[in-house]
Every structure is written in structure tokens, then in C-alpha cells.
């Protein structure tokens, strides 16, 4: 009887061990992600939950509606999707490139800015963002294709010689494809260095992410001021930020 009990106990132990091992392997395969608060198809209201909020950015950040401020700086309409910021101020671009595409047939959320009260090299970044939702897949396809095509025309380098001191200087542009939580698009990296006599210490590190999923297109511009000699890291930071914010959209 004792022998039988020992065997039964050993059998149970083996089964439990195998089960725990199997569970461990399965747990090792799984990944944790926050629960979404909405799902496709998106509306103007629901897609806002995927935008960056002041609490996402950090303590000290505030949110303001863009009522001309941002559009005045980058000279694009508040309801447009950026494709090549600042290029319209350049004098040495040979091809015609639109700095932004105004979507046809979409419902925009408008543009919001999440930023610290005072911007500087050691402050929080500035996020300029918005979204557009569409009623039909063909409209969203057409808009995204137009945005990608226009962004692809953005020159690798251009310069702005005149205008406000904050925009004068050299611009270097690069673009990479990106996919976050099923949202696909591109991340356009733009580095703005001022003329040495104006500002030899810092440069602007701007990444504009434009992604599409289902019936929505979201764009997020993430800008930091970095010291010359330091690596640009806006792309890594905006990816990490959007991984959190886009997870809310399901």
C-alpha cells in the first residue's frame, strides 16, 4: 500500500512537474500589453485615446489645442498630415514637395500640442499630433498612399536661409518604415542644425511618425533640443511612447 501510494504520489508529481513546465514555456512565450479601450473602426472621439496625453509625456507637460501656433511655425494647416516639415521655407529644393497633405473625405481631430511650459535642451519633448478617420477603406488607402508618396519626395538635405532664426539652418531628412501594435507607416527623422554663428551648441531632433490602421491615420511629431555631440534619440523615445498610446486603441 505504501508502495502504491508512493507510485501514485510520484505519478502526480510527474504530471504536476510536466504541467508546470508546460505552463512555464507558455508563459515565457506570452507577452504583456495593456488592455485597449476601443477597437476599429475608429471615430473622431475614440481615436483621441490613442494620442499622447500630458500624463504620457511626464510631469510638467501641458496640452494645448493648436490654434495657429504650430501651423505658424511649420506653416501647415492644423488638419493636415505632415510629409516634409519646413521644406516650404527652403530655397534650394529642386523638386516640388508639399510639407503636408490635407486629407480628402476624412474627419480630423484637429492638432494638439503636448509640451512643457518652457522648452529647452533638458526639458520634456514637444509632441505635435493629430488623427484623421475615414468612412471608407479606399479613402484611407488613397490618403496614406498620397502621404507616403509625398514623404518619399522629401529631399535628404535642404537648407533654409531666411526667416525666423529658429528655422534657419541645415536640414537632414531620413525615413524608415515602422510598425507598432499593427499600425504601419513611417518614421521621418529630421535634424535641424543652425548656422554655427547662430547656435553652435544645440540641434533640433524631430521625428514625425505617420501610421495607419483600419480607418484611421495618426501622426505624431516628437521634437527635442539636443546638444551637439549627443546622439539623437527621438525615434527610440517616440516608438516607446506610441507603443503605450496605440495599445489603447486595440
Amino acid at each position: 500500500m505504501r508502495g502504491a501510494d508512493r507510485k501514485a504520489s510520484r505519478s502526480r508529481s510527474t504530471a504536476i512537474a510536466a504541467g508546470l513546465l508546460a505552463l512555464g514555456v507558455l508563459v515565457g512565450c506570452s507577452s504583456e500589453s495593456p488592455a485597449p479601450v476601443t477597437k476599429p473602426p475608429y471615430t473622431v472621439d475614440s481615436v483621441r485615446s490613442g494620442l499622447v496625453s500630458p500624463s504620457d509625456l511626464g510631469e510638467g507637460a501641458i496640452e494645448i489645442e493648436d490654434e495657429g501656433h504650430s501651423s505658424h511655425v511649420i506653416y501647415t494647416p492644423p488638419n493636415s498630415i505632415p510629409t516634409c516639415p519646413y521644406v516650404q521655407r527652403s530655397e534650394d529644393v529642386e523638386v516640388t514637395v508639399e510639407p503636408a497633405i490635407e486629407p480628402v473625405g476624412g474627419n480630423p481631430t484637429g492638432r494638439t500640442i503636448v509640451a512643457p511650459q518652457i522648452v529647452g535642451p533638458s526639458s520634456l519633448p514637444v509632441v505635435t499630433q493629430g488623427a484623421v478617420v475615414f468612412q471608407s477603406s479606399s479613402l484611407v488607402d488613397d490618403t496614406m498612399n498620397a502621404v507616403v508618396a509625398e514623404a518619399n519626395k522629401c529631399p535628404a538635405t535642404f537648407s533654409v536661409l531666411g526667416g525666423p532664426a529658429t528655422v534657419v539652418g541645415e536640414y537632414k531628412v531620413g525615413s524608415r518604415s515602422i510598425e507598432i501594435n499593427g499600425w504601419k507607416g513611417f518614421a521621418q527623422h529630421l535634424v535641424h542644425t543652425s548656422p554655427p554663428e547662430v547656435n553652435p551648441e544645440t540641434y533640433d531632433d524631430l521625428v514625425t511618425v505617420v501610421v495607419r490602421k483600419a480607418n484611421a491615420i495618426i501622426y505624431v511629431g516628437y521634437t527635442q533640443i539636443k546638444s551637439v555631440g549627443k546622439r539623437a534619440d527621438s525615434e527610440e523615445k517616440v516608438k516607446a511612447l506610441m507603443k503605450t498610446t496605440l495599445a489603447r486603441l486595440g
Binding site: 535628404a156 538635405t157 537632414k172 531628412v173 531620413g174 527623422h189 535634424v191 542644425t193 540641434y203 531632433d205 539636443k226 551637439v228 555631440g229 546622439r231 539623437a232
Partner: peptide, 9 residues
Amino acid sequence: TAAEPGHYV
């Protein structure tokens, strides 16, 4: 192409 100073892509 150049990105930020010292970084090429």
C-alpha cells in the same frame, strides 16, 4: 546621408 552631427545613415 547625414543625420545629426556625427551620425550618418
